[in-house]
């Protein structure tokens, strides 16, 4: 009986969104009378950072500072349609919709500015600081604040735009079954090192090293935050968490935190995160979905490391001491 060490590797590619019947998200953008921009969405921020990322995308597209953008995700009954924030689709789908809406609003904004400055709208550019100026002659400029006032009180224009992003449903080819179930793919590779006690079946994850390829990281600190938390959640799924410990028998599922094993801060593996950015062609500013994918590769990596350590294949999650001991017993009985 001994503590045995093992190392496992796993790689994944992970779809951004899904289109089982079509995958739409819509967005509306309008300016307030003082030249702030309101983005209306049904894509909810539940802590993943939707509001921050959509504000960045809208601000970048219109050409204003991020703090000039307000995100309203308040009500899925009344907001523009969104399929939801799942399948790592939020940044990609809502982001594309916001870009389209913001472009349309920007065009109206430039048309109003052109009337005020008595120039052609196509000769205008934004300075990113809240002003619109003539290309090559920045001294001829007008603030977006004044443009909005003019649109609202003088010109009778609505500085607004509509954005729609729809991935149409893909039907499988009859002959081959080939289809396009999603858009761009994120990628990841994980190496996990574990110790397995072959007397108790207990697994300790010593280190987990992850490389994530997630397209453009639109907000690098928030991406890192998501990846660190996701890497831990992957280990948690691999070793601890399940609502159905004897699946397909559904008895004995945890109904509260006394029974559902939720690891605390004492069970952390040494974790390394490396981000590779390969911008996607169809993503907003090259983004893919880093959301769910980051919690996946740790699971097969840990399973492979357990195999490397004690020579048993656990193919049911989570990899509990009971399952390891049963497999070791079966192995010994040979």
């Amino acid at each position: 009986m001994a503590i045995r060490r093992g190392r496992g590797v796993a790689a994944i590619n992970y779809p951004t969104g899904m289109n089982l019947g079509g995958d739409p998200t819509q967005a509306l953008v309008h300016s307030t009378p003082t030249g702030n921009f309101m983005v209306t969405l049904s894509s909810v921020d539940l802590g993943q950072g939707m509001k921050q990322i959509m504000a960045q995308i809208c601000a970048e597209t219109i050409g204003v500072p991020t703090d000039r953008v307000i995100i309203d995700t308040a009500d899925t009954d009344t907001g523009p349609h969104c399929m939801g924030t799942f399948a790592s689709r939020g940044t990609h789908r809502a982001g594309n919709a916001v870009i389209q809406a913001a472009k349309e609003a920007r065009q109206v904004m430039l048309e109003v500015a052109a009337e005020e400055l008595e120039v052609n709208a196509s000769d205008l550019e934004t300075d990113g600081q809240g002003n619109i100026q003539v290309k090559g002659a920045p001294q001829k400029s007008i603030s977006i604040f004044d443009v909005a006032l003019s649109a609202h009180f003088k010109r009778g224009r609505s500085i607004s735009g509509r954005g729609m992003f729809l991935i149409p449903r893909s039907y499988p080819e009859k002959e081959t079954g080939a289809m396009k179930p999603s858009t761009c793919y994120a990628h990841a590779c994980t190496v996990a090192e574990v110790e397995v006690d072959d007397e108790t079946g207990e697994v300790t994850v010593l280190t987990v090293k992850n490389v994530f390829e997630i397209g453009r990281a639109l907000n690098p600190k928030m991406v890192e935050q998501q990846l660190v938390g996701g890497s831990w959640m992957g280990i948690s799924h691999a070793l601890y968490e399940t609502t159905e410990p004897y699946y397909p028998n559904r008895d004995h599922g945890g109904t509260d935190f006394n029974q559902y094993l939720m690891p605390g801060p004492g069970d952390l593996a040494e974790t390394e995160i490396i981000v590779l950015e390969r911008p996607s062609a169809d993503g907003p500013f090259g983004a893919k979905g880093p959301g769910e994918m980051c919690a996946n590769p740790q699971i097969p990596a840990v399973a492979n490391a357990v195999f490397d350590a004690v020579g048993v294949r656990i193919d049911t999650l989570p990899i509990t001491p009971e399952r390891i001991l049963r497999a070791l017993k079966a192995q010994a009985a040979g």
Partner: peptide, 14 residues
């Protein structure tokens, strides 16, 4: 912090 659980962060940032 051992009596407090967190779903999102993986604890390390906390």
């Amino acid at each position: 912090l051992s009596g407090n659980i967190c779903r999102c962060t993986g604890y390390e940032p906390i």
